[in-house]
């Protein structure tokens, strides 16, 4: 079971939940995590596929092939909004 922190629009798309708890059965890479999220929350899944929402592991943006380990801090990061220049 992994816990994923949600922020901004991803929190809204998950019904205003701050975290998701998911079980990874088929593989433990970031892309497997994305598949599980896609099945449960298709709107967030679509944003992940389009790379509009990124996955961070231990406070760094993660590559899809990175393996997720027990105790890792995982979050979904929607586009950062600093405003226009």
């Amino acid at each position: 079971m992994v816990t994923i922190q949600l922020f901004g629009m991803t929190k809204m798309l998950a019904g205003n939940r701050g975290t998701l708890s998911l079980s990874l059965h088929d593989g433990k890479r970031v892309k497997d995590l994305v598949s599980v999220i896609d099945a449960a929350y298709p709107k967030i899944g679509e944003l992940l596929q389009k790379k509009k929402v990124l996955v961070s592991v231990n406070q760094e943006i993660a590559h899809e092939d990175l393996e997720v380990k027990d105790g890792d801090e995982i979050a979904l990061l929607p586009p950062f909004a600093g405003g226009n220049r």
């Binding site: 922020f7 901004g8 809204m12 909004a81 600093g82």
Partner: peptide, 17 residues
């Protein structure tokens, strides 16, 4: 850091930079 703008039409998460 994410920005939620409150407008007369509702709340919008800003995504452009």
């Amino acid at each position: 850091i994410w920005k939620l703008e409150h407008t007369p039409e509702g709340e919008v998460w800003v995504e452009e930079h």
